[in-house]
Computed example of a mutant assay.
Amino acid sequence: RDLQDLLLSGGEPLYVRVAREASSWNRADNLGLVAGATDLQSLAAVRAAAPDLWILAPGVGAQGGDLEKAVRAGIRADGLGLLITTSRSLARAEDPGREARELRLAINAVRASPRQAAPGELQGPNANLADGLLEAGCVRFGTFTLKSGAASPIYLDLRRLVSHPGLLARAAAAYLPLLATLSYDRLAPLPYAALPIGAVISQQTSRPMVYPRKEVKEHGTKAEVEGEFLEGETVVVVDDVATTGGSKFEAIERLQGVGLRVLDVVVLIDRQSGASEALARAGFRLHSVFRLTDLIIHWERSGSISSRQADEVRRFLAGAEPAPR
């Protein structure tokens, strides 16, 4: 695992890159992959990277792998593509033939009833990223005073990502599917939290970046926007969190002031506190990797936060008074 879990410069685990490359090499339909059934997240990530390849998944039975979960994580869209080995279970069975038939029936039962993801459910790399943000202290629960003066039961501090290079790379990589659907010339990350995120995305995509200054320089070039650009180019605003949208409008105004065009804003987390609606009214589109409510559901289901903590955040988002302690 020391090698397979290494993060490449783009933030992608080595084993996922190998799976993706193998998928591109499979021109004669003669390549397959091995992914253990005891590591469901990795199995699901391999399937996502190589949707058409056959996967050999050892580990069900004596090694502790769960048959149903392994099938759901590794099966192809056509219901095939997964070879499950249960050598010890069969070899040690009193009646290996009956055991094999029962395993076949169990596999086919799962195939016949594919599980649909629940609304807002996080899966694969995004679920891992959500867990990493919580573990790194980028999300905290308690009582915090926001810039607006409101008391919030949750605080998002993605500036901490700079102290976790691997997590920073994974966070930046999570923006890529959203950015791939947009048309733009340059990235425009906002100071301060989004600057390192934007720099990593720039490396991952080879797209140049500029950034609007928070404070206009009173010396030198007195630039409001740093970096090279041409008037009329389109930039996509990149930020860590969207709350009301106020900071986005300030940045957009500076970008437009130097002749740049803005259509889209991309963030890691939408706090669902009015930013999307406010930006839409002004003609801008907000795209987010996560909605805060979906993160709360994920952490509550995984046991990472208590139901009380989850309910306090939901009440806050709904504008209700916090429950008495």
Rank of each mutant, 00 (worst) to 15 (best):
R254L: 10
A323F: 05
T143F: 03
I252N: 02
A174F: 07
A280L: 12
R27D: 09
V262M: 05
T244R: 01
G137D: 11
A323I: 10
L67R: 05
N26F: 05
A106K: 04
R291E: 15
N128D: 14
L105C: 15
S273F: 07
P324L: 08
A173C: 09
P191C: 07
V235R: 00
T85F: 08
R17P: 04
L129A: 10
L168E: 06
A118N: 13
V46M: 02
A151Y: 03
T244S: 14
L146T: 07
I75F: 02
A150W: 05
S9F: 15
S276T: 13
I55W: 00
E250G: 08
A49S: 03
I305A: 02
R111V: 13
G245I: 03
P189E: 03
Y155W: 09
P322M: 07
A44V: 04
G10C: 08
G149Q: 05
P189D: 00
F290W: 01
P96F: 12
R254G: 04
A242T: 08
L263G: 15
G257Q: 07
G274Q: 07
S113W: 12
Y192P: 04
L295I: 05
G245R: 02
L129T: 09
L40K: 11
G227Q: 00
S306D: 09
G220A: 15
T181A: 13
G32M: 11
Q309T: 09
V313A: 05
E300G: 06
P165V: 12
V266S: 04
Y211P: 00
L31G: 07
R207V: 10
G32C: 08
V258E: 04
A194T: 02
A169Q: 06
A251M: 01
V46G: 13
S206D: 14
A318N: 11
L161F: 13
K248L: 10
G149A: 07
A174S: 11
P51A: 04
F249T: 01
A172M: 06
H298Y: 02
V238P: 01
E94R: 15
L82F: 03
D78Q: 09
G257M: 09
T143E: 12
V216Y: 09
A50N: 04
R308S: 15
R254Y: 10
S23H: 10
F290R: 00
D66S: 12
E99P: 03
E224T: 12
R170S: 07
G245K: 03
E226N: 02
D239H: 14
P125F: 02
L105M: 14
S9I: 09
L122W: 00
